[in-house]
């Protein structure tokens, strides 16, 4: 099967064949591609980036992301959880906005000044 690697902008078009330990991957420019292909076949993961509401009229949204990847199938559920958040305090990049969402934290990716 064809898998497009999304790890970096090269976007390698890889061809994966075989199963489990015998998985053969070709078309990757770097080893990250093999890891990606393996994960994609067994348990695909995605990072999620979005925004949360704030109480500050000058900056009504704060950009956030999952600290590490979450299962691809849980992306919409994660969105529903994130959507309930309203930020009341100034934040810095990396501050935790919502802990423990499918095994990771939702963290700020932008500055929120008062």
């Amino acid at each position: 099967m064809e898998i497009i690697c999304i790890v970096c902008p090269n976007g390698c078009r890889m061809e994966a064949s075989g199963e489990g330990g015998n998985l053969q991957v070709s078309g990757n420019l770097c080893p990250k591609g093999i890891d990606f292909a393996k994960a994609e076949i067994t348990a695909p993961m995605r990072s999620l980036t979005t925004t949360v509401a704030t109480v500050f009229p000058e900056s009504p949204r704060l950009p956030v992301k999952t600290r590490s990847e979450i299962p691809k199938g849980k992306v919409m559920e994660a969105m529903a959880k994130i959507r309930t958040v309203v930020v009341h305090e100034p934040k810095k990049v990396g501050d935790v906005i919502l802990p423990d969402v499918f095994g990771t934290d939702i963290i700020a990716t932008g500055e929120l000044a008062r």
Partner: peptide
């Protein structure tokens, strides 16, 4: 606005 009727679209 973002989040309007969110639960309606994606039941938790």
């Amino acid at each position: 606005s973002l989040g309007d009727k969110a639960t309606e679209v994606y039941p938790d």
